[in-house]
Amino acid sequence: MAKHRSQNAGTTRRIAAASAAVATMSVLTPGIASAAEVAVPGTGFGVEVQGVENIPGVANIPGVEQYIPSLAGQAAPAVEAFTAAAAPVTAAAPTSGNQAVVDAVRSKVGAPYVYGAAGPSAFDCSGLTSWAYAQSGKTIPRTSQAQAAAGQQVAISDLQPGDIIAYYGGASHVAIYTGNGMMIDALNSGSPVTERPIDYMPIHSAFRF
């Protein structure tokens, strides 16, 4: 008898839970005349609920046919369209924001070195780097030491075209990295703006704006 009472108590609890679910769904679907059976799996208990089949998205709930048998095989065709629309879209990787810097500095190869000059026809080293960045819409400090202090430090192994390389112990000279182990700089009065290997002089640091 104790076992029988336990089974009855379990059934009562399942019926109560099902009734609560039915009551909730009834509240969500006021005024809808059509009805469908809502069943409690494994109990044989079920009840007709008005409008349950019309609840938006109910047919797409995983396993819903166990509770509303009449919905078996009736998943809304819009689900595929929704899934496709919700699928993440992978954006194309943006091009380097400093390519304009490289293009600008390369256009000045051959321009004369003049101490204190910042373009557009003659340059010193930091005048060249600050002018090239200005062509891409970025304002950076004027002197080599200030540029080295303000930029985001990067490892030489992580250089990207458009990064600035500082040379010598006090970051007294700067150049723009152009890729493939090369840089462009305005070195001194005996040399115009030139593209040369990055290890042409002792490297102090590299940085990015």
Rank of each mutant, 00 (worst) to 15 (best):
L187I: 09
A16V: 07
A111Q: 04
Y167R: 05
L187Q: 10
A134M: 09
A92I: 05
P94V: 00
A23S: 10
S6K: 12
A148P: 03
D124E: 02
I55H: 09
G169M: 02
Q145A: 12
Y200T: 15
A166P: 01
D103E: 07
P77V: 08
T12Y: 15
A2L: 14
I198S: 12
G169S: 09
R106H: 07
V40K: 14
S126E: 03
Q66G: 15
T43C: 06
V49C: 07
A2P: 01
G127W: 01
S107D: 08
P197G: 13
L159S: 01
T90D: 09
Q152S: 14
T90H: 10
A86H: 01
S144T: 01
Y115V: 09
S136F: 04
L71I: 01
G181L: 08
S107H: 09
A166L: 02
M182C: 04
S191A: 14
R142M: 09
A175E: 01
D185M: 06
S205M: 02
V49T: 06
V79F: 00
P69F: 06
P88G: 00
A39C: 15
I140K: 09
A17F: 08
Y115A: 13
V64L: 14
A36S: 15
L28D: 09
L71E: 01
A155K: 11
V109H: 10
Q147E: 07
S157F: 06
I55C: 07
T11N: 14
T12K: 15
T11L: 15
P112W: 03
I32R: 15
S205K: 05
S172Y: 00
V40Y: 10
Q99F: 09
V174A: 07
A20W: 05
A149K: 12
G42H: 08
A111M: 11
T178Q: 06
E80K: 13
D124P: 05
Y167V: 02
V114Y: 06
G31Q: 13
I61F: 03
A39S: 14
Y67N: 13
N60W: 04
V52R: 08
G46C: 15
Q66V: 12
A23Y: 06
A122T: 04
R5H: 10
A21D: 06
V22E: 11
L28A: 13
A111W: 01
I15T: 12
M201I: 05
G162I: 00
E195N: 08
D158Y: 05
S144E: 01
D124G: 03
V52A: 11
A92E: 12
T178E: 06
G137W: 05
G63D: 15
A149D: 07
A175C: 00
M25L: 14
S107I: 03
I203A: 05
N188V: 05
P56D: 03
R106S: 12
A166G: 08
T178G: 02
I15V: 14
A148R: 12
F82Y: 13
I176T: 00
